[in-house]
Write a protein that binds this DNA or RNA. Structure first.
Length: 256
DNA sequence: ATGGTGGATGGTCCA
């Protein structure tokens, strides 16, 4: 089973890249973030023609998540329980057999100390609360998505320049560590200890060509699911195409 | 030097 994730920065602009990638990698599940459209404008038919099922939680202009899968999930939850409108659509979860797949688009946070920064920290608390109330660390569970946090020094191109900056501040990393301590492991780090592997590069300043990136997209899994994980990787090829997303897709393979 | 690029939108907001 391959579970994957991609912040596409508009599903309608990125549709050709996503369909091409699905055909090449053939993941069983693809979690999308930043689809940037309401459910009615999601290109559902194109995915169904490719043999995939769509569970969409979109909104106009901003955010929006969706779970694409080769089999219909047994259950789906949109947003956190008890969350009241208006809220940004950044969370959708689907269960496939006994495997729970959580698709997250963690807020960017704009700048350390800003209003959006505290919104981000609060959102992380809500995610932790969701795990504590709706799941057990013994579940077969994966959290896939754009975390908008680089967990360690080796995940950023320049730890000195990034120190105390958004996406790498101690407060963000501590909040994420708190979630990790619930019982999660970073699937990518099960197989690769090297620095210099990134999943996002700013569109500006030729960041991709200059290898100035961050590893902020992740598939974190519970201990029990990690025992089935045989591969976890970042596919930077789509980032090289014309009109790319600023994020690369990531994927992990599980054998049961 | 607070720049720059891209997406949705239709003037700016967001990343």
């Amino acid at each position: 089973m391959i579970i994957s994730s991609w912040n596409v920065n508009s599903i309608n602009v990125r549709l050709p890249h996503v369909l091409d990638w699905l055909g090449k990698v053939k993941p069983n599940v693809l979690c999308l973030q930043e689809i940037k459209c309401i459910d009615e404008k999601f290109p559902r038919q194109a995915f169904e023609d490719a043999g995939y099922h769509c569970e969409i939680f979109g909104e106009k202009t901003y955010n929006g998540v969706a779970i694409i899968s080769d089999s219909k999930p047994d259950s789906v939850q949109r947003g956190f329980l008890g969350e009241k409108e208006p809220f940004s659509r950044r969370f959708i979860e689907a269960k496939f057999g006994n495997v729970s797949v959580l698709d997250v688009y963690i807020p960017n946070g704009q700048a350390v100390g800003s209003e959006k920064f505290f919104y981000k920290l609060n959102w992380l608390k809500a995610l932790k609360n969701h795990l504590m109330t709706e799941h057990s660390p013994n579940d077969l569970l994966a959290i896939c998505g754009d975390y908008n946090i680089a967990p360690e020094h080796r995940d950023v191109y320049d730890p000195v320049e990034m120190k105390d900056q958004i996406l790498f501040s101690d407060e963000e990393k501590d909040a994420l560590k708190d979630i990790q301590n619930w019982g999660l492991v970073d699937s990518f780090r099960l197989f690769n200890d090297e620095a210099g592997h990134y999943s996002w590069w700013d569109y500006r300043m030729n960041s991709f060509r200059r290898k100035m990136g961050l590893r902020i997209d992740h598939i974190w899994v519970t201990e029990s699911l990690s025992k089935h994980c045989t591969q976890s990787w970042i596919d930077i090829e789509p980032r090289k195409l014309e009109k790319p997303s600023d994020h690369a897709p990531i994927a992990a393979r599980f054998e049961f």
